[in-house]
Amino acid sequence: MDFFSRKRMPVFLLDHVTEEVIYIVDRLKVRGLLMTPHKNVERIVVYLRGGKGQVGRVRPARMSQFKNKNTLVFAPYYRGSNGSEGRDHFCGDDLNDVIVGINILKEKYPQIPVHIIGFSRGGIQGLLTYQTVKATSYIIWGGVTDLLMMYEERIDLRGMLKRMVGHPKKQYEEYERRNALKNINQDSPPILIVHGDKDKQVNINMAYHLEEHLKEHNVEYSTIYEQGEGHVFRPEKEKQTLIQIHNWMDKCENKNP
């Protein structure tokens, strides 16, 4: 198992090589961005983007926030986006794009801890896949945790959800298939919840909803709730949050050496 092809990208980092990779998922050629350190890989971070299509596309600057000199960072584009074949099903078959990409990395770098970071729409993508790939931890940042809640709260997105998933009453089974919480229990890897209380794209109620479930089922978790912050944090607060995220990953790895 390996990437089908690699293309060097004009992203100049002192300690990493940046490549656009293509890999095969369900007979589709799916693309992603890969930052590989020059030094030995000691940590893998998988960044799951938000949005769809050109909205929320993968950006090298964002990926770079989660690396150090020994961290490999990978971000799938998802099928139907940015040159990937197929059609985006919004947490449907496109979940395989996440799983297969991570499995390629796990085979290439066995025994290396894998942390997944899901932002916005990527939040629910991660909740639905992080257990399957046996992630060391999962960080959900401003993330969607429940599509039914999203349908109720974001009237402006109902048309998109009807097209991509269906109507909550007529296609209830499709929403139930995307229920990210039902299989999370006390044996699940730890979760870090990051959210701003002024987030207008993904209401902080999503984070509270997830926290309630984790608490009820005795899942290890921690929270970073930032007062006055929106969907995208202001630079100084973002910098502080990134330090906390790196510390979280260190903590989770030290628990499971």
Rank of each mutant, 00 (worst) to 15 (best):
T223R: 12
L214T: 08
I224M: 09
E216H: 14
K215I: 03
E229F: 05
H209V: 09
T223V: 09
Q227E: 08
Y208W: 11
E212W: 06
V232L: 08
V232M: 07
H217I: 08
T223C: 12
H213M: 04
E216N: 15
L214F: 12
E226G: 01
E226Q: 14
E238Q: 11
E216D: 15
I224V: 11
P235T: 04
V232C: 03
S222A: 14
E220T: 13
K239P: 03
K237Y: 00
N203V: 05
L214M: 14
G230H: 06
Y221V: 00
N205Q: 13
I224T: 04
P235G: 01
K200S: 08
A207W: 09
G228C: 04
H213K: 10
M206F: 12
Y221W: 09
Y208R: 10
I224P: 04
E212Y: 10
K239V: 00
M206A: 14
N205K: 13
T241F: 01
K239R: 10
Y225M: 02
K237Q: 07
M206P: 00
L214Y: 11
A207I: 03
Y208H: 12
L242Q: 06
Y221G: 03
H213I: 03
K239M: 00
I204T: 07
K200N: 03
Q201C: 04
I204K: 14
V219P: 14
T223D: 08
S222E: 14
K237P: 00
K200C: 00
L214G: 09
M206R: 07
V219D: 13
K237F: 01
L214H: 11
K200T: 07
E236W: 07
Q201R: 10
P235F: 03
E229S: 06
G228L: 03
R234V: 00
Y221D: 06
H217F: 15
A207H: 05
G230M: 02
K215E: 11
A207Q: 06
